[in-house]
Design a protein around this nucleic acid. Structure first.
Lengths: 208, 208, 208, 208
DNA sequence: GATGAATGAGGTTTCATTCAT
DNA sequence: AATGAATGAAACCTCATTCAT
């Protein structure tokens, strides 16, 4: 690691280090999302997160200066993915039929890998903690509202905003449901959520 | 003679035997639900709960032998209310129009006192913790399924079960929304959730 | 005691209360010795002792002002019994053959009822606690030394004192052994302790 | 990479991986044995143990995840010493005269360092607590029985087992006596215990 | 950088004892 | 007297975070 402290030939020498660091960080974040998902924010311990990533506690703190920072990093990572997904939907919103739009939205969160639950957990757990109460949620609501508006140009903005809240609930519910452990009829229930959302959008976005 | 003959359980709440105790227990549960709602299960501290109830920590432990027992007691209390409510709806299910049924269900959780959020929090937070993963949730799902079946006799039971899961999600979402602090358009959003549920039930319960 | 504060007709009126009190005290002491025996002094709780006696914690404190006082009372009770037993042996010491003397001594502690272990526990546990470190033990040692001296008049007093210490160990060991839970060969082991003590006294008390 | 791959037990001691840790653990165990010896298992506090070792409470828990684990570690350490000693005696058992065997056994426990009392205390105090009620004691009994059998080949095994129990009592009594604080005639009493054991073995192990 | 030990505030829980009814 | 609730110091233990190697 500290192979050349004084030499200036940095770029080439550091490269493998940077690479190692990137891997470490990825492993740590992956481990963190698993542990947060399993235990919840408070009950998750930094020591366990480090251990699951095959790292030492010191190493974890080298990259994330606090538990909060770690959670924020995870949230930011998810926000990026989610916003990318919403962006994609936005692009195609006008062309989509309402039921397809419903499916696309529902699939967005469900499609996130096994870290799905972690986002939800952090979402909720850190609601009061953070100063701006969940920018992510607000951003998602706004993005969804925009999608709805694009899809149904006649929709009054306040109505779109209110509908977005309801749609986001469906998206979260679906994501949560899709990782719920012992539900024998998970798929059927998911299908119902989907059906409900389709109905809702079909009715709500129909041209007056 | 003996102090606690029935419940020397150490995992369940001890019941008070004097008027004074009954008052204490009520105050403690009220305080607990506030603190749990504010902070979440893990972040809530027994010390704060006792203090908010104007009791000493020892007094709290006199009746609730552990934090877990306290949470369980709260959950049980809510379960009772909720089941009573579901019972009432069950009784009138057949006579209700689908949209009215939707409203009745949504109002059930929204109508619970200001401790509403506590139930939700405990619901989620203690999901993995408890051995039987939320009997309450299963009971609610079953009760809702039964209501749907009563309302639409032709509904196949598996379908009713899957729909119940979806409906319960709406009920919870509405309850959470109704106590969310800084949402300017709370009422509009609630109205949307309501509309969605009405649509869903109207479509799903219609005689084929 | 303070049943009638003003009336003077005390003797007849108080009698049943006194009787009740005596029974209570007996039950409490019995329960205490069981709990101390099972859990040890520190781990025994006043609440459990009261409960086992079918009394309330308040009632226990009515008769014994502290845990220490309760232990002392038990110890005193045992001291009385033991001293009575030693007195009886003293009376017959001169007439007994050495092996019979050994048996009599060993039987003394073994013969105490199921509270045997409690004495030992309190003996040990409160060694450092009490100001005069175990008067009971010293008294027993002196009494045994006296018995040995009576039995073997030529024995020099310091020798008798040293032997008494050794003999008391055998007595305690036998008592402990006789209540040890899962020892398949309890009786054989007890017989060996007995044999050892007989040999020892036979050799040590033989006229030079 | 991972910190503790082998022992994430939470019931057993974690082993230090650095020189500093090794020193700490040694200091902690030393302090623990002193405090246990002075106060007994229950009355000893983890805080005092840490303080006496010049460590913080967190440091103590870093290596011993519970008070019980600490006691077990001490016991295991002593078990090792004791078993080594018994092994040595076993090796020479056949060549020893009975009185010398008696002395060797008595000296075994008496010769352990000043923490002797701690073993005894933990021995007794944690008898009921531990699931396998003192494997150490059983191991010692078996080892002593084997020594006796080696010494007197004609001895029936059950007899050897029973004698071993009696001999172990003498060993413990001697160890306890040798650290008893205020006994003016400690040495004389110890000599008597020794004499008794010699007599017993001489008689019991003599060829019929 | 990486590792594992160190720290200590703070959380849960226990229990002897006191008090009000 | 008797009961059961009240009290709070103090015990055990956890864990985010910092530090030395």
């Amino acid at each position: 690691m500290s192979s050349q402290k004084s030499t200036a030939d940095a770029t080439t020498a550091r490269s493998p280090q940077r690479e190692r660091g990137r891997l470490r960080v990825a492993a740590l974040m992956k481990a963190a999302s698993l542990v947060f998902a399993e235990k919840g924010y408070e009950a998750a311990t930094m020591t366990e997160i480090a251990a699951r990533a095959g790292a030492s506690i010191g190493s974890l703190y080298q990259f994330f200066p606090s538990k909060e920072a770690l959670a924020d990093a995870l949230l930011a990572q998810y926000a990026e993915q989610v916003e990318a997904g919403l962006g994609a939907i936005t692009a195609g919103a006008a062309a989509l039929a309402a039921p397809d739009l419903a499916d696309a939205l529902i699939d967005l969160l469900v499609g996130l890998k096994d870290e799905r639950r972690a986002v939800m957990v952090l979402f909720e757990a850190r609601r009061e903690a953070t100063a701006p109460p969940s920018e992510l949620r607000d951003a998602m609501r706004r993005a969804i509202a925009r999608i709805l508006a694009l899809h149904a140009p006649g929709l009054p903005p306040p109505r779109a905003a209110a509908m977005a809240v309801a749609v986001l609930q469906q998206m979260k519910a679906a994501a949560l449901l899709s990782v719920e452990p012992d539900l024998e009829s998970r798929d059927e229930a998911l299908a119902e959520l989907r059906r409900m959302t389709r109905l809702y959008l079909a009715a709500g976005l129909a041209p007056a």
